[in-house]
Simulated assay, not measured.
Amino acid sequence: MDYPKSVPSAGLVNGKFVNEDVVGGLPGSLIPATWGNGVTDELLNVVKSVGLAPSEADATQLLQAIKKLSQAGEDKHAADVGAANLYMANYLPVITTLKDGLALRFTAANANTAASTFAPNGLVPKPLVSLALSALRPAEIVAGSVCSVVFSAALDSWVLVYASGGNANGGRLLGVRTFAASGMYVPTVGMRNVLVKIVGGGGGSAGAVSTGASQYSLSGGGGSGSYAEAWLSSDIVGASQVVTVGLGGTAGAPTSGGGVGGTSSLGSLVSAPGGQASPWLTWLPANATGLCVGGQGGDVASGGNIVNTAGAAGAPGISVNGSTLAGNGASSPLGSGGKGYAMPGSGYGSGGGGMAIGPNLAGRSGAAGAPGVVIIYEYA
């Protein structure tokens, strides 16, 4: 709409209406019936579009209509008329160009099964990306999702800000997968990143040989498995990874050392070696002072981009003039070492406790180390 500039008899001055100037003898502007009806019809169309019946007595109808139209967002929401992974919607007024920051909503007709695009009003489809600015993964949009998208000129893509019912909330914890035994890790649909925590198996402790009169026997504790933490993207993890969980080292017999803890790993991405066993030592005379070392901790882990640590050494067994003390097993970040007198390691990756006996006793076995573990926190 505009002023009736094409009607010479309207008497516009500088393109606008003016009042009559009686003193100066200048006539006032005239409002042509066509122009007056046109303006009125435009306003009434707005009022009628929200279901209001025009009323001469109500001077608030235009304002009511504008508020309702703004709430309905008819220019910003439309139904999807495309296919899976190719979302399309027709808006009124028609969108003819894409501007940076343009925000739109649509109700999806289909779930996405892979990377997807969006095209309003028949424009060239542009990629849909997540809040992490990566291509959409399956099920981030489901059938019936109300989707909010914003166009980014820098990315030449639509950013999916929200999708009801889908997995589009970036950073959301999908779940925790704990592997206490070896197996295969297959990511949950919608996983974007994982936080992996891995510890190797703990070392076992040696046994204590049988003793005669005035003889003592003892052993140190097993070492703990090494530990790693890593933050990995879905691209690195891939479709699946073999999970290996290191066994805890076996308990040593009365005449042998304990077993070494096994290595835990997530494929070839992250690896945590197991702890060493404590060595076996023959008996000591009552008046002797001796030290039976504990097992060494596992070698430094690899692949962790947050933490890579070596395991801790088990405590030594000690004998001083007939007083003996068995060594405790080493603790890991996910488990407590076994106490002396052959207590096994608890939790994950801790060493078994050593053994100590006095004179004239049968030999005693040591303790087993705790098994390792692979824990995977999945995030959308």
Rank of each mutant, 00 (worst) to 15 (best):
N85A: 03
A79K: 12
L104I: 05
T97V: 10
L104V: 10
D80F: 09
E74I: 12
T97M: 01
A53E: 14
A57H: 08
N110C: 01
N90M: 00
D100T: 10
D80Q: 09
K68M: 02
Q61L: 05
V47H: 02
D58T: 07
A114W: 04
Q61T: 04
D100M: 11
L98A: 09
A57D: 11
F118G: 08
I66T: 13
I95D: 07
T60A: 04
N90P: 10
A65Q: 07
Q61M: 08
T107K: 01
A83M: 12
F118M: 09
A115P: 04
K99V: 15
Q71Y: 12
R105H: 09
Q71C: 03
A83C: 02
A53H: 09
N90H: 06
L102H: 03
S116G: 06
N121Q: 10
S49H: 08
F118D: 01
P120N: 14
G51C: 02
E74Y: 06
D58Y: 05
A103T: 11
Y91N: 10
A111E: 07
V94Q: 12
L104E: 04
P54M: 05
A72M: 09
N112Y: 15
I66A: 08
Y91V: 03
L86A: 14
A115C: 10
A111T: 06
A72F: 01
A59D: 14
A78Q: 04
Y91C: 08
F106C: 01
T60R: 13
T60G: 13
G51Q: 07
E56Y: 03
V94I: 00
A108V: 05
A83E: 04
N110P: 01
A79V: 01
D75F: 03
A108R: 02
Y91R: 11
V46S: 04
D75L: 04
G82R: 02
I66H: 13
A119G: 01
G101N: 04
A72L: 04
V47I: 15
V46T: 06
V94G: 03
K99S: 15
T96M: 03
L102Y: 01
L63A: 11
K76E: 13
A79R: 10
D80S: 05
A115D: 09
K48T: 15
P54T: 07
N90Q: 04
F106Y: 06
A109C: 06
A111S: 12
K76Y: 13
V50T: 09
N85Q: 01
V94R: 09
S70W: 05
V94N: 11
I95L: 11
A65R: 12
A57L: 09
L63C: 00
L63K: 07
R105I: 00
Q61R: 14
L102C: 07
A103N: 02
E56N: 07
L92M: 13
P120W: 14
L62N: 08
L104D: 06
N112K: 08
V47K: 04
A84M: 05
Y87M: 02
D75V: 05
T96F: 12
V50M: 00
A89I: 14
E74G: 14
N121P: 15
H77T: 08
K99M: 14
A84S: 15
V50I: 11
A111L: 05
L69S: 08
A89N: 10
I66F: 12
L92H: 05
I66R: 15
L63W: 00
R105F: 04
G73F: 03
I66P: 00
T117E: 06
Q71V: 05
